[in-house]
Design a protein around this nucleic acid. Structure first.
Lengths: 269, 269
DNA sequence: CCTTTGGTTCCGAATAATGAAACTGAAATT
DNA sequence: AATTTCAGTTTCATTATTCGGAACCAAAGG
């Protein structure tokens, strides 16, 4: 169930260990890591030491535990700021949220997973760090399917077999065949639906963010509950969504010019 | 002015390149990086390629540019969640913010810099990823001085010479000597003041978060403007701050038990 | 005192990184 | 059209790191 990247070379190994530590979601002892590690004791030990001296991990002398280091938070700040979509999308997400009163997501693909980069919720104030950075499955979420549908064939074929196809609800799409059919539908309609695929009672409509050259850059979605609304009503928002998506794409394009020096802060509404 | 870590080994080199790309704050061409890189062309090329295949960088085929990859955001989510302070501090920061109506910061040290991990502002809704992850100088901010003052002597001596001692305002402390005196004061009073050291008009009072064993884990602060309030009035909040700090420390301590499986989400107020 | 558990260090062998130089392919220049 | 320049990519013999089995250490338990 864990993400496995083709880790080659020294940095790949180091990162796989880092991922492993991250997957515990709490500080871990050396042995905890060793038990599920493919690396022999001495090797793992040195990798962990390296990660600590690099600041990617911290070592708590008192408890003898390793935890992720704050250096990552700093890098992520830069990543979020310069990952083309998130900063330029902000005002558009806010606008969508205010216009619809529903939850808005911005996501990109991280390997085979959906990675949420921003979220708006008209009701509750949300703390972004506990929301952005979260990962979810691609094959059974609105944003995930919208993105998969607009991936170049080659990449799609690499990613499809990596989906878990776990059945979360009765409506979950549980096979690559079914998913391929659904993706074709999505391509034709221009938007994707989440019919309680992932969570019972949670429905959503999503559209891809496509560049001028129709490259898939991410996706945005409007999420609600089947108690409050219906797929039919959600579909009414598709034009707004598509409009926002193309605005975001345009802004991102502009933003990408290497000689464009504006900082994202300045693009606030 | 850029952070230079003792980068040893292969991962160190890779990370130094990653930092360099991050420092541009925009997508960069190969040559942009090469120009300020200590590495020869071929080496740099391979390092960049590695980083791309590892997902730490993305390569835009159309523009031929490198940018930070979203994998970092995902790792940072885990880092933020499991870095002992941030998740447990959340409710306390919110409470402080509501009680005082002022801006609240939570910070930890990242090498010689201050790294902000959370922020509350009673007035404006903030997006965390554009705030948390930011770095600032240690020698001329409230949280920075509070943390330095409670560092073990050895570490302090390593970090003090790494400060830039740049004069931001007339009130900035610009030498290691002056700073050492100030730190001693802070140790005695138990709190640190920012007397417009860093930005004109911005004042702040900060206290360290100390563990049971008096290990320095971070700092929290209340920030305001000299127009709205005064250092004298800010000092009145010191007991509240210290109380919050010790609550946070206690919660963090508890949270660190490796067999404590509660997720930070559950600790929401 | 012996054993187990958890962590750390050694050192020759295995592997990966290095970087000068050569190459490519696409402009820009003549 | 031929030539130069420039930006990026590949090769390959050399060099430096990393690997990992085994030995070692220290603390806890019997």
């Amino acid at each position: 169930m864990e993400t496995e990247r083709k880790s080659s070379g020294t940095v790949g190994k180091a990162l796989s260990v880092l991922d492993q530590v991250a997957s515990f979601e709490r500080p871990v002892r050396f042995n905890d890591v060793l038990e599920e590690s493919p690396f022999p004791k001495a090797t793992l030990y040195r990798i962990l030491q390296n990660l600590v001296t690099e600041g990617l991990l911290t070592f708590d002398r008192e408890w003898q535990t390793y935890a992720l280091g704050v250096r990552l938070v700093r890098l992520a700040h830069s990543a979020w700021t310069q990952s083309s979509l998130a900063p330029v999308a902000r005002p558009h997400l806010t606008a969508l949220s205010e216009a619809t009163g529903e939850t808005i997501h911005l996501a990109q693909l991280d390997g085979p997973h959906v990675l949420y980069l921003d979220k708006r919720d008209a009701k509750r104030r949300v703390n972004m760090f506990s929301e952005a950075g979260k990962v979810g499955p691609a094959y059974c979420t609105g944003v995930g399917k919208a993105m998969l549908a607009h991936l170049p064939e080659g990449e799609l074929q690499r990613i499809l077999p990596q989906q878990s196809y776990h059945r979360f609800t009765p409506a979950t799409i549980c096979s690559q065949q079914e998913l391929t059919v659904e993706l074709e539908q999505i391509r034709q309609h221009g938007f994707a639906l989440d019919r309680e695929d992932h969570e019972p009672g949670i429905i959503c409509v999503a559209v891809p963010v496509l560049s001028r050259t129709r490259q898939m850059m991410g996706a945005i979605s409007i999420t609600s509950t089947s108690a409050r609304t219906s797929l039919g009503k959600l579909k009414k928002f598709v034009p707004d969504l598509q409009n926002a998506a193309s605005e975001i794409a345009k802004a991102a394009e502009y933003w990408r010019f290497p000689d464009n020096q504006r900082t994202p802060e300045k693009m606030e509404i």
